[in-house]
């Protein structure tokens, strides 16, 4: 019972969770030692050199510079050590996601919407398999939110206007808190969720049980037609528009002479701000879909275009 009150009693369950916990303990021990030493000295001096006490006060240190150099150097070395330690783990936390299993997260006031590639959608919950890195692609519908799973020792802001990819991985099955950590308005404190880490078999079963009639890409495909995108971007069209088959992940020459890789961000920008990066050889005639579709639909469209990556144009 009392153990639950001790912070970090439960080990972090991400691959680097143990490292973060060790760092925390290291910081805790180091600062307790420093604080202890300091309080001890202050107490000692206060008692020994109190005004009424008749002790030797002669010959107090007149030249101070070697002390100064001493503790300045000591602090500096200790601090640089801590910096390197923290930075090393930090780079591990935010390593570039391996493009393995992608799950999409849309944050909006005041809920987390999660879409799995198979089309499974959930709100305020994220089911994931254990021991397998999951690449979260996060977007915000409105204000800045922050995706925070204490048990995974992980947090990242979700800023409107762009995609944020992070990799998460849990090593033990369980239900873990998901908090919004960046203040986002009235019900910020209720923007809670749950991360459910499951054994692979359970996860597969969950996916199957939740499976909707269509996958995310299929939903995107339907939307693609419904919004009229297919009118220009498909083969039989009379309007000259770039074909999307085999596009994803390839370099795209732009009208201004530069080149971009057709990644999630490029596709997103091209749908919302079609005139910002026009592919070479095409007229800037595509209308903007800004305000006409939300982040969730955007993700479906991107998933659909992604699914065309392997199709021969």
């Amino acid at each position: 019972m009392w153990r639950q009150w001790i912070p970090f009693w439960h080990e972090g369950v991400s691959p680097y969770g143990g490292d973060v916990d060790l760092l925390f303990r290291g910081l805790l021990v180091a600062s307790t030692l420093v604080l202890g030493l300091l309080l001890f000295l202050i107490l000692l001096f206060c008692i020994r050199y109190r005004a009424g006490n008749d002790v030797d006060r002669e010959n107090h240190e007149a030249k101070s510079w070697h002390w100064e150099i001493g503790w300045t150097a000591a602090s500096l070395v200790a601090f640089l050590g801590l910096f390197a330690w923290g930075a090393a783990i930090f780079l591990k936390i935010y390593q570039t996601p391996a493009d393995d299993l992608s799950v999409f997260v849309v944050a909006q006031q005041w809920m987390w919407k999660v879409q799995h590639p198979g089309g499974q959608a959930e709100i305020n919950a994220l089911h994931m398999p254990i021991n397998r890195p999951v690449n979260l692609v996060m977007a915000s519908q409105d204000v800045i939110h922050s995706f925070f799973i204490p048990a995974l020792r992980l947090k990242h802001d979700v800023v409107p206007g762009r995609y944020q990819s992070i990799e998460i991985e849990a090593m033990r099955p369980g239900h873990y808190h998901l908090f919004c950590a960046e203040y986002c308005g009235t019900d910020h404190a209720r923007m809670l969720g749950e991360v459910v880490a499951m054994r692979p078999a359970d996860y597969a079963a969950w996916l199957a049980q939740q499976a909707p009639s269509s996958s995310l890409a299929q939903q995107g495909s339907a939307l693609f037609r419904q919004l009229g995108c297919s009118g220009c971007h498909e083969g039989s069209s009379s309007i000259h528009a770039p074909r999307l088959e085999g596009l994803y992940g390839k370099p795209v020459p732009l009208s201004d002479g530069s080149t971009v890789i057709a990644d999630d961000k490029y596709l997103r920008d091209s749908i919302l701000l079609p005139r910002s990066q026009v592919a070479a050889g095409y007229q800037p005639v595509m209308p903007s879909f800004e305000g006409r579709i939300d982040e969730a639909q955007l993700l479906q469209l991107v998933a659909y275009i992604k699914s065309l990556a392997t199709v021969k144009p």
């Binding site: 680097y16 490292d19 925390f24 923290g86 930075a87 090393a88 930090f90 204490p150 020792r153």
Partner: peptide, 8 residues
């Protein structure tokens, strides 16, 4: 100030 702990 320590990056990895600050993330948490």
């Amino acid at each position: 100030a320590c990056l990895a702990f600050d993330v948490y």
